[in-house]
Simulated assay, not measured.
Amino acid sequence: MTSPVVSTKSRDDLGALRRECGAWLKERREAAGLSQRDIAAKVGIEYYTFISQIEAGRGRVPPERYEAYAKGLNVDPREFTMTMLRYNEPIMYDLLFKDEQKAGSVQTSGPALSDLEKRLALLESKLMHD
């Protein structure tokens, strides 16, 4: 019998990733012009305070809400799911997408992706208001 793989991510690393995820979600929500109450309603989460917990890194988006959350934020559901995996399940993400990361076809840099998304959201906002 083989021994189980031991996680190389410490609790502190995982906490930091969860906070980064919360910041990413908050950036997306604000770029979409939504309040925490707005996104809670779009996602079907009864208490908007749960959105606050998620954005603070103290909670996670339930996987059964990924598609609704993505649509609420105007993010591609596949991209949203991959981002949630990258932040919340980094070992699984690496196992699934390790080859794509090496080839450069999967975005692994949170800040670079966020900067691009911010610029796109600003451009969309300007186009819609012109």
Rank of each mutant, 00 (worst) to 15 (best):
I51P: 00
R60A: 11
G44E: 01
T49A: 06
A56D: 07
Y48K: 03
Q36H: 02
Q36F: 02
Y66L: 07
E46F: 12
G44L: 01
A40F: 00
G57T: 07
R65G: 04
R65I: 05
G59Y: 06
Q53F: 14
V61D: 10
R37K: 10
A68T: 11
K42I: 03
A40G: 02
G44C: 01
E67D: 15
I39N: 03
P63I: 12
A41D: 02
P63V: 10
E55R: 06
R60Q: 09
A56T: 07
Y48C: 03
P62S: 12
A68K: 08
V61G: 06
P63A: 14
F50V: 09
T49Q: 04
G57F: 03
P62R: 12
P63C: 11
Y69P: 14
Y69M: 14
I45H: 03
Y66V: 08
A56E: 08
P63K: 11
Y66G: 12
A56N: 06
R37Y: 11
P63T: 08
G44R: 00
I54V: 06
S52N: 13
E64S: 14
G59L: 07
E55F: 07
Y69G: 13
P63R: 09
K42W: 03
I39V: 06
R58H: 13
K42N: 08
F50D: 09
G57E: 04
K42F: 04
E55M: 09
V43F: 01
A56I: 05
Y69F: 15
D38H: 00
E67R: 15
V61E: 06
A41E: 04
Q36D: 05
I45F: 02
I45N: 02
G44H: 01
T49H: 03
G59A: 07
V43E: 00
Q53D: 14
G59K: 09
D38G: 01
Y48S: 07
A68Q: 12
G59Q: 08
Y69R: 14
V43M: 01
Q53C: 11
T49C: 04
A40L: 02
G57M: 04
R58T: 11
V61P: 09
Y47N: 15
R65H: 08
E46S: 14
Y66W: 10
V43R: 00
A40E: 03
E64L: 12
A68S: 13
A56F: 06
I39C: 03
R58A: 12
E46A: 14
P62E: 12
I51D: 00
S52V: 10
T49E: 05
G44V: 00
E64Y: 12
Y66F: 09
S52Q: 13
I54N: 06
I45P: 02
A40M: 03
G57L: 07
S52F: 08
A40I: 01
E64N: 13
E46R: 14
I54W: 04
A41H: 05
